[in-house]
């Protein structure tokens, strides 16, 4: 007697033509995120290229600090790198904060969703035919995030110093404070909060350990960073917006559009 081999039925996914069956407003969040990112990128690009009104004693815009080139405004920085007058000094340094944010695990989520649409929202079919994620160039470069973290930490120290020297008046006398000082102080605090809540920071200071009980100090640091890390998204947005506002305030004061309010 011949036997017909039993083959399991060939199974396929459910054929559902719609991109998604979600009924909630899933476009809202990526649109908001995309709009904020777009506004920031447009404003920051203009502010970086305009090459004026970025310094007014004792305030310097975070987009131009540290100001390292010979063409920086008088008193604005260290001024030791030979530079050409037509090129904005910001070009030399802006790659650090930009790279830190672009490789940030939170911003990656934000722009992969809102700009690259990969995916736009959970359970919504993405428009790309092929997907290789972060397995190859150029997105494999995201793995350098930890290096940006360390260099950005150096920048935080410099921007904190900028906030400290803002406790002077226009003639360099200490013991004074204006609204600009407060703006720079908040900026420095937010940038530190953003850096310290970073996932690479969390890994470096304790996350990479296997045996927490053998390293109680690092475990304590990891615990504190973990608490801050839970708010990384919120801190990322607030610090981004505040950097832009800080530049705008200093720009308005430097151009004479508004007068800095002096507290004492």
């Amino acid at each position: 007697m011949t036997q017909t081999p039993l083959e399991p039925p060939r199974l396929e996914r459910a054929e559902i033509g719609a991109r998604t069956l979600r009924t909630d407003n899933w476009r809202r969040q990526p649109m908001i995120n995309g709009a904020i990112l777009l506004v920031f990128v447009v404003y920051a690009t203009w502010a970086i290229l305009v090459n004026e009104n970025y310094f007014v004693e004792p305030y310097i815009s975070p987009f131009y600090s540290p100001c390292l080139v010979t063409t920086c405004a008088e008193g604005a920085g260290w001024q030791f790198v030979p530079w050409v007058a037509w090129l904005t000094p910001s070009i030399l340094i802006i790659g650090v904060p930009m790279g830190f944010r672009m490789t940030c695990y939170y911003y990656r989520k934000a722009y992969y969703r809102s700009i690259w649409q990969s995916p736009t929202a959970c359970g919504v079919k993405e428009p790309h035919k092929k997907y290789t994620g972060e397995t190859r160039f150029p997105l494999i470069i995201q793995n350098v995030h930890r290096y940006f973290f360390w260099v950005a930490t150096l920048f935080n120290i410099i921007l904190t110093w900028d906030a400290i020297i803002a406790f002077r008046d226009h003639e360099g006398n200490w013991g004074h404070m204006g609204l600009g000082t407060l703006v720079l102080l908040i900026n420095a605090v937010l940038l530190w909060a953003y850096s310290l809540s970073c996932h690479a920071c969390r890994h470096t200071f304790g996350g990479r350990l296997k045996h927490f009980s053998k390293a109680p100090v690092r475990y304590w640091m990891w615990t504190q960073i973990t608490r801050l890390n839970a708010k990384h998204m919120e801190i990322a947005w607030v610090s981004l917006v505040w950097v832009g506002l800080t530049d705008l305030y200093i720009r308005l004061v430097a151009s004479g559009t508004i007068t800095d309010i002096r507290f004492f």
């Binding site: 695990y105 990656r108 989520k109 992969y112 969703r113 990969s118 995916p119 959970c122 359970g123 997907y131 290789t132 994620g133 972060e134 397995t135 997105l139 494999i140 793995n143 930890r146 996932h199 690479a200 969390r202 890994h203 996350g207 990479r208 890390n229 839970a230």
Partner: peptide
């Protein structure tokens, strides 16, 4: 490397496990 940390796994987890922040990103760092 295929994971681009868009956190949908974390969003849908009925046990509220922070899959992306506590497992995938730490693994990416390692």
């Amino acid at each position: 490397g295929y994971c681009n940390i868009t956190k949908c796994c974390t969003e849908v987890c009925p046990e509220h496990i922070k899959i992306t922040d506590n497992a995938l990103i730490p693994m990416k760092e390692r």
